[in-house]
Amino acid sequence: MNTTPKVLAFDVFGTVVDWHGSIAAEVKRIGLDADPDAFATAWRDGYRPAMARVRSGELPWTKIDDLHRLILDDVLKEFEITHLTEAEKRHLNLVWHRLIPWDDTIAGLLRLKNQFTLVTLSNGNLGLLANMAKNAGLPWDLILSAEVFRHYKPDPETYLGVATIFDLAPEEVMLVAAHKDDLLSAGKCGLQTAFVERPLEFGKQMQRDDLAVEAFTTYHAKNFLDLADQLGC
């Protein structure tokens, strides 16, 4: 029988908020001459390679806001967009602070909060996550970030750092995420895991084919409301 977790740690981009839909909507709103879905995808595609440069030591510790800007500059060149002012580029880069939650997010988190301590465990930096929470009304008990641990997921220091902060055993922490590689890494560190389906994470044009139930996850939920049901909230 599984230990009842005390802390639920949430991946954020894609799990809690709709990064693709939010960025595509911003591209439309400001009238960029680019396919909104392609632009959003290209920007996100630079995310892992940029973090890998930090994790390998090629780059010193660099917060996600600054990595997002490096990637954005490359994407603007790729799409041959040259008319944005520096102020407009800075504002566009901060769209990551303004991402919109999934429809079930707020109600699901509020139910889960009645029974568990809710924290973020995101590669996003602290300022980004705080602004996002303020903008979207996300009811976190604590905002934790790779920035706190100076390690990006999937480094073990991130997952185990949550348990250390709360003076808990790893199995008393559960990672909630829409990404199986994140959950696999957390599970290897002894955390419980909950996979949440987000079929539209990459937009309607790119349906996910990785939503099947896996033996390595502790829970598998359609959304946060379903997870709350399973956890008796």
Rank of each mutant, 00 (worst) to 15 (best):
T4R: 11
D33V: 08
C233Q: 13
N93A: 14
N135A: 14
Q230Y: 03
I23L: 15
W140P: 11
A163M: 11
H91V: 07
G124M: 09
T105F: 02
L200C: 02
N2G: 00
L94K: 11
D45R: 14
Y159P: 05
G187I: 07
H179L: 04
H97V: 03
K113Q: 15
T3H: 06
L94Y: 10
L94V: 01
A40K: 02
A169P: 01
E147V: 07
P101H: 08
V95H: 01
T62K: 00
W96F: 15
L110Q: 15
A87K: 09
G161A: 10
T117R: 14
M51S: 11
L231P: 06
P36E: 02
D66I: 08
I23G: 01
F195D: 01
L118H: 12
R90A: 14
L8Y: 07
A221W: 12
R111Q: 15
A186H: 05
G108S: 03
A34W: 04
C233P: 02
E80L: 05
S122V: 07
F149E: 05
A9M: 05
A52E: 15
F149V: 05
G190C: 10
D65Q: 11
D210W: 04
L160Y: 10
K204M: 14
A215V: 12
S145D: 13
D65T: 12
V54K: 00
D226C: 10
D37M: 06
D182K: 05
Y159G: 06
Y152H: 01
L84D: 13
V213Y: 08
K6L: 13
A186E: 03
A133Y: 03
F79C: 03
L142K: 14
T218M: 09
L110M: 13
P36H: 02
L144N: 01
A25N: 08
D18S: 12
K63L: 05
N2P: 15
D74Q: 11
N131W: 00
V95F: 00
V7Q: 10
P139M: 08
A215L: 13
A194Y: 02
W140N: 12
H20E: 13
I100W: 00
D35L: 07
A163G: 11
D18I: 11
P139C: 06
D226N: 15
V54A: 00
F116E: 15
G190K: 06
L184G: 04
K89Y: 13
D45G: 05
E157K: 12
V176M: 10
A136Q: 01
T164V: 08
M132S: 08
K204T: 14
G137N: 09
V75Q: 04
T164K: 14
E58T: 11
L8A: 09
L211I: 03
L175G: 08
T164A: 15
T120D: 11
M1E: 15
N125Y: 04
W61N: 00
P170W: 08
P139L: 04
D45S: 14
L110V: 03
W102Y: 15
L138W: 04
D226S: 10
L184Q: 12
L211R: 07
K89S: 12
L126H: 12
E88G: 13
E157N: 08
K28M: 04
L76D: 05
T120I: 08
F116H: 13
L183P: 01
D210F: 07
W19Y: 14
R208G: 04
E26F: 00
R150G: 00
D210P: 11
K28H: 06
F79K: 03
